[in-house]
Write a protein that binds this DNA or RNA. Structure first.
Length: 321
DNA sequence: CTAATGTCCTGTACGC
DNA sequence: TGCGTACAGGACATTA
């Protein structure tokens, strides 16, 4: 279940394999994986064939490969022949981007194959594998951004952002994350804290797992009203998301059922240090250390599971906080 | 405009 | 054993 740390692990893993290489051919084995490409399979392939990958860039959980035309650039002062575009990827629940030798048999859920120009010692194919098909690929325009580039943790940020990701907020690990703007928007909302954390337009990169982990770490309940949240609580919560994500990043991403693996196919192992998510019925570690017996509780919220400690994350009463 | 709900998907786990 | 059902959830469309 890739969230920001997993997507960033994929980005870092991918960049040295694909930068500077040309897409020679594309196989779309399941058109459902490119359903967000409105103009269809032929147009998708036509946009990619012959294009050269210049970078791998991330905003929130969106990942894109900016493309350059394979043909020589237009002369000075002339307009480029084609508008700037990128190959966009979202991993959804179970998406993987794998570098693979052509000899390796197709994965069971292989959806799209890219044959790349040969390079010594490097696998010849980039493969998009996705079991649950919540993820997908499409071609998007690159457009100017007024907030200093895509941000994220990209190595070479360019002043262009993928159009389909331009509504996505910066993430908590982004040095340019605008805390004041975030806090003001949070206060203007009338909803629960977790719902706001999962809104990628407010703060990006957080999914169900890290939302539960960050709320646990900050000792905040998911239903805390956002319109009354104190600045200190918001700051602590943001710091908690950063800590959880940095731990996961250091471990190479989280993995639960081996659906998620990084670009080279290796699973992460951060799941062993989760404190709330998936720990229903088990003791709250923080309370246990204080000599208090408390059991992690799982509740349905927003059609998904929320994990809290009833002792150190008390439910708000009448919204009076 | 905001907030909340429904939809897309497949594989696994589990009760009977 | 097989069958049905619940569950996992990111992003966006739809509804209120």
């Amino acid at each position: 279940m890739p969230e920001l740390p997993e997507v960033e692990v994929v980005r870092r893993g991918l960049v040295s394999w694909v930068r500077g290489r040309t897409i020679e051919s594309v196989d779309v084995l399941d058109p459902r994986s490119i359903r967000r490409h409105a103009l269809g399979t032929e147009d998708f392939i036509g946009n990619l064939q012959g294009a050269t990958v210049t970078d791998v860039v991330r905003r929130g959980k969106f990942l894109w490969l900016p493309l350059a035309d394979a043909t020589p650039d237009a002369g000075p002062g002339e307009t480029p022949r084609r508008p700037a575009v990128a190959l966009m990827a979202h991993l959804g629940m179970s998406g993987q981007l794998l570098m693979q030798d052509p000899e390796v048999p197709d994965e069971k859920h292989l959806k799209v194959r890219f044959r790349l120009s040969a390079r010594d010692g490097m696998p010849g194919e980039l493969r998009f594998v996705d079991q649950r098909i919540f993820g997908g690929l499409f071609v998007t325009a690159l457009v100017p951004t007024d907030d200093g580039g895509p941000g994220g943790l990209s190595e070479s940020p360019v002043p262009l952002i993928a159009e389909e990701a331009s509504h996505i907020a910066r993430d908590p690990l982004d040095p340019a994350f605008p805390f004041e703007l975030f806090y003001q928007r949070l206060r203007r909302r009338k909803t629960g804290l977790k719902r706001a954390l999962l809104d990628q337009g407010l703060v990006s990169g957080i999914g169900n797992i890290y939302a539960d982990e960050a709320l646990w770490r900050a000792k905040l309940h998911y239903a805390r009203p956002t319109d009354k949240l104190r600045r200190a609580d918001a700051e602590r919560l943001l710091a908690s998301t950063r800590e959880v994500m940095l731990d996961a990043l250091a471990a190479g991403g989280t993995s639960f059922d081996s659906l998620y693996v990084n670009v080279n196919g290796a699973s992460g192992y951060f799941d062993r240090s989760l404190n709330a998510y998936g720990r229903e019925g088990q003791p709250c570690r923080r309370c246990a250390e204080a000599g208090i017996h408390a059991t992690i509780r799982r509740e349905q919220f927003m059609n998904r599971s929320s994990h809290t400690c009833p002792v150190c994350q008390p439910r708000p009463r009448n919204g009076r906080w």
